[in-house]
Amino acid sequence: MEYKSLNKKAIGCMRLNSIIWSVILAVSGVTTVGIISSNKVKIPTAVYITLGILAVVMVVYDIVVPIIRYKRYRYCIDDEMFVVVEGLWFITKSIAPIERIHQIEVSRGPIDRMFGLGKVLITTAGGVVTIKFLENELAEEIADKLKNRINNIVKDQGVNNNG
């Protein structure tokens, strides 16, 4: 079983995703503090210090975490199964037999498109496993391969059932 890593463009995509969330959180925090202080409520200095520390943590998070996530992200597809390994603190390994796949979908969000990336959503009867941050051509190639493989399995099963 040979695991594959992602293209380095994935780091940029992960980082931009992370930055967007950080900005949303920061704007929410600043707005909340602004609303509270505009109501003549004195905010303790400790709150400002905490917010400052959180801001620094977020910046470090945006710089470092995508690199760790990129290094941890691996996937493997062979004739029998597909495996995805991902995570930061908690590493999750998801595995499903190819034979259980019901549906394959290639999806590209706005941020993915900026980096020329996409994701393959593999649906089984029990849920979805997603291979993220794949280059467009690779995503299409994986989806096609999986579709062909499933078609062959369905044909084989039909022959066996009729036979």
Binding site: F90, A96, T124, G127
Partner: peptide
Amino acid sequence: QIVNSKNG
């Protein structure tokens, strides 16, 4: 259908 394992 799917098996997951997770460790921290």
